[in-house]
Write a protein that binds this DNA or RNA. Structure first.
Lengths: 199, 199, 199, 199
DNA sequence: CAATAATCGAGACGGTACGTCGCGTCTTGGG
DNA sequence: CCCAAGACGCGACGTACCGTCTCGATTATTG
């Protein structure tokens, strides 16, 4: 007899409706886009999704959790580095972050997690695992490759470099004026590669 | 006619109680520290401060505004650069940011403003003016001085450098693991000064 | 100085709105009349009364309590006995009960109290004190007068007689067929006065 | 073609489980006894009976119907009159009613039907047919026998007499104080037989 | 010094959303 | 066709806060 390949035993009872899943996530994203995190309330999500409130609470314990899952559906993968030039690859990654940071939905997503992390450590942990870490790993791979090919100086701290590259976009996204433009990514990468120090 | 030396005309009637002001701010900070922005509600602030709700609404239009004022009371000035070495000055500024970022109250403050900015542009604007900009200016002054003294390479982009220095701390403050340690600030500054590129 | 005639110290804060009181009771009676105890829900009462739910819950702990107070507004006093003939007086009291028992609202009121008494002993107690007992006392006074004037036999048990007179109406009000008619009250009184036994 | 002797055509497929029937009725009675009609809900009945909700709805259209059937299981037949003395027979019937009325489950049963009758006329009708009428008929038979044997006065109204005898117990069961005691039944019967009037 | 006027605490007001519970129906896989 | 399990849309529950609005009682300034 063949072992059951599924991780969990098949649940008894009526299975959850995937259509309801989709309707809820869709309604949540709509409402979030229209009126932000404050304006998102379970009652309206349920009404717009054509779903009972209990159907939502059966899946998520509260609105933050729902919102997180909904926003996760928005996470677009960063572009795969082309592998030709470390400078170009880093710039295209930073540029992708910059483009995302202009979307106010992404900004709120980051803030939600950054701010409520202390209250919902489980959520932030999952977000870091599924979103932040894979993206940092992309940067790391490029940086390691650069050190291997000699494009980058030996002995550089990869983690610190990742912090500066991704953090620059975060720092710029605060405030409404002086938004980063298309040239921003390249300038960040160049400054970091060349170094501020005189030689 | 004599010019009124005060900004606003002197009001008749009973003046507002400064004791109430202090009690409200104190209660708001307590509650924010205990349960975060979500857990902070005017009714609890009023109850804890021993104050009527109207006394709060007479001063602030809503909870965000109250919260912002309360949090502003927490903003500590960054250390004044000593002016000896650009490398040391930058490191001490970054270190001050890092220390702040460990305080969950500060993390929430940043996040609240970063995330709800789109909904409350007036608030974020004021925050940027009164908190963010003065701090960036400190970094700028050190960087300009470095370029003047020759410690820093000419032609570097000051704004981009500020982004990377301050953003690195932001990037690190996401997630709970791999918290930045005391040596972090110096490493960030050194990597940036030396540059990642090989030469 | 004159003693304060009010039983309780004047409450601080905004006093409760008597208009809200009336609107709530009115809406509750309307809904009860339309759809019975099952159909009466606080949410609808609030909506029809143009009142927040909290305004109701501030006054009554739940729907039973509200309903009881609302129904108490329906209690009409029994007719005062004329004092001429015991037979006539009893008949007119029984007739008043019979007329009431035809009103389905009264029937439900009785049933609510009779049935849920075990769950809400406080309520049934108050109902008995304010409604049942005063009415029984009316019967008792007539019966005592009859014994004093010689219209009634000495040694009769007043409580038992009250039970039979009022209970007959209760017994008849069960079921929909064979409703008691106008002559019913007199027949009950006559049968009881004459006695069933042959002599 | 052979006539089907059973009332309903024999159904194909798996027959209904009699064990489920019993478990449901038992659970319903338990819950009714514990928390009254309000506290009885199908979900709890199903859970306690170890039965799916559909299994209940396959048998009864709603909770009232289930409750009625469950309560019918509680109806004990009144004692058969011995036929020796009308006075004794009536007293034993009234006494049986009195004993029943002390059981709070019976009181609620009566109230449920008395009060919700207007909303569920089908139910009250069936209850009157199957429970009330047979009991009244017992009283009637005794009273008719009494008139035949001369123990009772000719011309008495049997229906009115039944109302008074059974209603007295109803009237007494309202309120918690002054519960009827063992001697109550005999006193009711005697007062009625002798009559209140002086002679 | 009395009148005026804004503030104070308390708490009720009409609302909105919360998260829970129960309804009666429907949908699984299995007997 | 029945069964246990449990999800479904629905709607009422009772609670918590929102921001506003009276209350009677306190202060200051003004006439």
């Amino acid at each position: 007899m063949v072992r059951e390949p599924q991780e969990h035993a098949r649940r008894v009872g009526r299975p959850r409706s995937e259509q309801a899943d989709r309707a809820i996530i869709g309604a949540a994203l709509d409402l979030f886009a229209e009126s932000g995190a404050e304006g998102l309330c379970i009652e309206k999500v349920a009404a717009r999704a054509g779903v009972g409130k209990a159907t939502i609470y059966r899946r998520w314990p509260g609105k933050e959790d729902l919102l997180l899952d909904a926003l996760a559906a928005l996470v677009a993968p960063l572009p795969e580095p082309k592998g030709e030039s470390v400078r170009d690859d880093l710039a295209s990654l930073v540029e992708a972050l910059r483009v995302e940071s202009i979307d106010p939905r992404k900004a709120r997503q980051v803030a939600l997690l950054l701010g409520e992390g202390a209250q919902y450590p489980r959520l932030i942990e999952r977000y870091v695992d599924t979103v932040v870490e894979p993206r940092r790993e992309l940067f790391r791979r490029v940086l390691r490759r650069g050190m291997a090919t000699g494009e980058l100086r030996d002995g550089t701290s990869i983690e610190v470099a990742v912090d500066m590259l991704t953090g620059a976009v975060l720092a710029r996204s605060r405030g409404t004026a002086d938004r980063a433009d298309r040239a921003y990514a390249r300038r960040v990468v160049d400054e970091l590669l060349i170094g501020l120090g005189s030689r």
